[in-house]
Amino acid sequence: MSASSIPRIHPLWVRLAHWLNALAVTVLVLSGWRIYDASPLFAFELPRELTLGGWLGGAIQWHFAAMWLFAGNGMVYLAANLLGRRLFRRFFPISLSALLADLAAALRGQLSHADPGRYNAVQRLAYLFVMVDSLLLVLSGLVLWKSVQFPFLRELLGGYETARRVHFLAMAGMVGFVGIHLLMVALVPRTLLTMIRGR
């Protein structure tokens, strides 16, 4: 690459993990909404046209296929992040004062994106949140799938019925994150290019 003068922001493995995760999350959320509609937990249903799978059986097939991609890809990402200590370099430290300052700047539309290689405090918190939220989705999903075989996890999450609610709320957290994430990408389109080209 002759462009070595331009610093690489996202290594290839991060980009791969990102797009595989985007695919897995899309399939899981859309099929999950169809599964939710089979027996809504709350007083609303999700629009059927937005769901994946056609019927409950089809949605479950999609969901229980994409779960392997989501969990497997997520584990590789987390392991690489931890082993390479990238997690600590990119997402820490977060101080409350930096968070408040960056949040205020963001809301005023004055947040600087001069250095795309450095995450601001709000970004750090958002990305750490989605990592924890993903872990929660996998763990609560395991309880829903195999509540008898994972008794410790089941009790940790308050039993099968509570795990259903945890799974739903974690999904809502994920969808909320994706919404803000896409909005930010629309506001700073350069970040989309860096996630594709790496620079």
């Binding site: 089809g58 097939q61 999609w62 229980f64 296929a65 392997w68 195999k146 008898v148 075989q149 008794p151």
Partner: peptide, 21 residues
């Protein structure tokens, strides 16, 4: 392909199944 994954999930569940649990 989805059916194949479903068959794989059968195997995964048989493996996870603890007869004494």
């Amino acid at each position: 392909a989805l059916m194949k994954v479903s068959r794989f999930n059968d195997k995964a569940q048989a493996w996870l199944f603890d007869p004494r649990r």
